[in-house]
């Protein structure tokens, strides 16, 4: 497929119409102009435009902001949600581990994540790739495998998601500091601060970030009402989002949704500073792997063979 044809196909898919690149840009620019004019007119739009970075918000700001988001969701979809702001716990650094000998590629984690994090149908934070058994060769991995039953013989399955790096290239790439590493190691995005330039997406070597090409449409009955400002609240169009280790759950002591959904128990999660945690024991006893170690990103996501 030529780049031109691919772009045309993408525009058709994402925006629901045939168009050329020129036409696409024209529409996009005109749309942007109209959108900015209309947001400038209504009060909430101005408020949004002048809102502060998450790290600058006072408790009072947060209260107002979260109430506004809750009201917006209620008006749009009729669902009463709670937007919370759980804080990192002192002395906690989250680590996720995955036993590759148990993963059979059933993608239950992918769908559980989508429901937990209010993802529209075209966005998934997790991707399970199919690799030849005995290799972790990502370059030749199959992303869209779709046999009747998994696992296929001669194949291994490798779930990939945000690795919550200690030295994240995505954070360095962000020109407006809309994404940063939290004290507990989770890399978060302030969706209201993100300008949608997608530099972070290009910088991430794990293909962990996703872009909202359009206003996310989620069936009201599937909206998870337990939301947090930095994780699973419904994102606006035109911003980048990613896995946050379900911080609205994990900062309250629960396991991430992907872990609880895994029927083979391949996922382990916990505080690396706690010597009784599963992940600490995993690191002490197992031979572990990280993806693309040579890049020096220092992931907080480990793979092992149990």
């Amino acid at each position: 497929m030529t780049p031109e044809a691919r772009l045309g196909e993408l525009v058709r898919l994402r925006l629901g119409r045939h168009d050329t690149r020129r036409g696409f840009l024209k529409t996009a620019l005109a749309g942007a102009a109209v959108a900015s004019a209309s947001t400038a007119c209504d009060g909430a739009g101005v408020e949004k435009l002048l809102s502060k970075h998450y790290l600058k918000l006072t408790d009072e700001d947060k209260r107002k902001l979260f109430a506004r988001i809750e009201a917006e969701v209620l008006a749009r979809s009729g669902v009463r949600v709670t937007v919370g702001d759980p804080q990192p716990m002192a002395g906690v650094e989250f680590v996720h581990a995955l036993d590759l000998s148990l993963c059979n590629g059933n993608r239950r984690c992918v769908e559980a994540c989508a429901r937990e994090n209010n993802l529209p149908d075209d966005i998934r934070y997790l991707r399970v790739v199919e690799v030849d058994a005995g290799t972790l060769e990502l370059a030749n991995a199959e992303h869209a495998y779709d046999p009747e039953l998994v696992p296929r013989s001669g194949k291994n399955y490798l779930p990939v998601q945000c690795q919550q790096c200690k030295k994240p290239p995505c954070v360095d790439a962000c020109p407006v500091k809309a994404t940063w590493v939290e004290p507990d190691g989770i890399v978060v995005v302030d969706y209201d601060w993100c300008i949608g330039c997608r530099y972070c997406q290009a910088a991430c070597p794990y293909y962990a970030r996703r872009f909202n090409f359009r206003e996310p449409s989620i069936e009201p009955s599937r909206i998870n009402p337990d939301q947090a400002y930095l994780s699973n609240r419904i994102r606006p169009a035109g911003v980048v989002e990613k896995c946050t280790y379900c911080l609205h759950r994990t900062r309250r002591g629960r396991y991430p949704a992907c872990l609880e959904a895994c029927p083979t128990g391949a996922r382990k999660f916990g505080n690396i500073n706690d010597e009784n945690s599963e992940v600490r024991r995993m690191l002490e006893r197992k031979r572990t792997y990280v993806l693309k170690e040579e890049l020096g990103t220092v992931p907080r996501f480990f793979y092992f063979f149990g």
Binding site: L50, K52, L55, A90, G91, V176, W180, P183, N271, N276
Partner: peptide, 23 residues
Amino acid sequence: ASGCNQGIEPMKRDFADPPPASS
């Protein structure tokens, strides 16, 4: 004026209570 390039310094954060032992 719109505050786009206000410096984002890491602020002093209020941490939640440390977790109990996980054993």
